[in-house]
């Protein structure tokens, strides 16, 4: 399933307790929509990967620039080719 009005931003971030607040705080503070968020630690755990599902609207370029500015964001990739359905099927992770 691919939704054309949405896209996924992949972030590699420093993994520490405050990093999630930095990312989500940016969205709430600037009034950006955040439709979904998935994240997990990478390798040894000093970095994490985050996938943000966002709408493709006029704010999109601003969101990218503001995220790139965050000190804890090491790398940012735009992942338009992703299958976004995982964000809507998280329930299935818990199925027997």
């Amino acid at each position: 399933m691919k939704q054309h009005n949405h896209t996924v931003i992949e972030l590699i971030v420093n993994n520490h307790p405050g990093v999630m607040s930095h990312i989500t705080g940016l969205f709430s503070r600037r009034g950006y929509n955040l439709e979904g968020i998935l994240c997990g630690a990478l390798g040894e755990g000093s970095t994490s990967v985050m996938y943000l599902l966002v709408s493709l609207n006029e704010q999109y370029m601003q969101i990218i620039s503001q995220l790139e500015k965050l000190h804890d964001v090491i790398e940012l990739k735009e992942r338009s080719e992703y299958d976004h359905s995982v964000f809507y099927k998280i329930d299935s992770l818990f199925a027997e």
């Binding site: 307790p17 405050g18 607040s21 930095h22 705080g25 503070r29 965050l70 000190h71």
Partner: peptide, 14 residues
């Protein structure tokens, strides 16, 4: 302090 200063700093550290 960390939470309070996220939106009003360029960056913050604990």
């Amino acid at each position: 302090t960390y939470g309070l200063t996220i939106p009003i700093t360029k960056h913050n550290f604990l």
